[in-house]
């Protein structure tokens, strides 16, 4: 059952409609709804355990919410499993890096294109003609569009396990870009990075939006980054949306400040960011 979107320009690319998700008795998400506007960077923030990653997992099809619906480009994808969601352009990175250690950087990136390639098992065994051309074209495109763009040409043949953390994050982004994303979901892309690495990543994210025309949904704890690059901010707390709007609005929201300061277990970085927010 596919519902076609009306062709309005600003129709949301992703609509989450009242989804709820529980594990045993624990409500990870309660009645969460949100829209992601195409061509924008939407940030999802909230204290630890607020349900941000659970929401990502529900959007990408890893968790099945008990109720609610998810629309992508107007199509109801609620009942779609994860692999077809990846194919229609929902690409993501992971909070805990999920690169495949048995593959080189290049192969990890190539893997992102998996769903769009056509080589069958039998074709793969012979690697002759079309499958070979497909591989070589993929290689050329990845080299020119992704590896150059993300400045990782020096490590393309390296095994991913040996790379420093910041570079691994960048390879994850590269792999997500290879998925031909329509919506790119980044789960804490700068967590654990130093200032310089964070700025590099911010630049890449902005470039992806501007040059690739990809819509971005981002989960991030680094408030300065969120305020700098996002067009919309959505705040989750205890599995519920407590605020949404442009960064400046959210910054002033009292409930948001309370959620952060009241949660009791926030990192000093967040506390500092909130203080900064309050001060500005």
């Amino acid at each position: 059952m596919i519902e076609e979107a009306d062709a309005r320009v600003d129709a949301p690319i992703l609509q989450v409609e009242a989804i709820s998700l529980a594990f045993g008795g624990l409500n990870a998400l309660r009645n969460v709804s949100l829209d992601v506007v195409p061509g924008c960077i939407t940030a999802l923030v909230g204290p630890n355990g607020a349900g941000k990653t659970s929401l990502f997992n529900a959007i990408s099809g890893f968790y099945r919410p008990q109720s609610g619906r998810v629309f992508f480009e107007g199509r109801d994808i609620t009942r779609l499993s994860a692999p077809p969601r990846a194919k229609i352009g929902l690409a993501r990175t992971f909070q805990n890096i999920a690169l495949f250690r048995g593959l080189t950087v290049l192969d990890n990136i190539k893997l992102g294109r998996h769903a769009h390639l056509r080589t069958s098992l039998v074709e793969a065994l012979f690697y002759y003609g079309r499958p070979q051309r497909e591989e070589i074209e993929l290689r050329a495109e990845i080299e020119q569009r992704i590896i150059d763009f993300l400045e990782i040409d020096h490590i393309r043949h390296a095994p991913v396990g040996a790379l420093p953390y910041g570079l691994q994050k960048r390879v994850e982004l590269a792999r997500a870009l290879a998925m031909k994303p329509r919506l790119l979901m980044l789960d804490e892309p700068v967590a654990g990075m130093n200032r310089e690495e964070t700025e590099d990543m911010a630049r890449f994210i902005l470039d992806v939006r501007d040059e690739w025309g990809v819509t971005i949904l981002i989960v991030e704890h680094d408030m300065r980054l969120v305020m700098d690059i996002s067009d919309h901010v959505i705040v989750l707390n205890f599995g519920e949306v407590i605020a949404r709007g442009v960064p400046a609005e959210v910054q002033k929201n009292e409930e948001v400040a309370k959620a952060y300061l009241g949660s009791g277990e926030i990192g000093s970085q967040v506390r500092q960011s909130v203080t900064e927010m309050a001060a500005s």
Binding site: F62, A82, P83, F100, R101, G102
Partner: peptide
């Protein structure tokens, strides 16, 4: 590549299509 991805981490392989 898909085989190796499944070996290394099957749940993330699934999310990559």
């Amino acid at each position: 590549r898909a085989f190796i991805a499944i070996r290394d981490r099957d749940v993330s392989a699934e999310l990559l299509g």
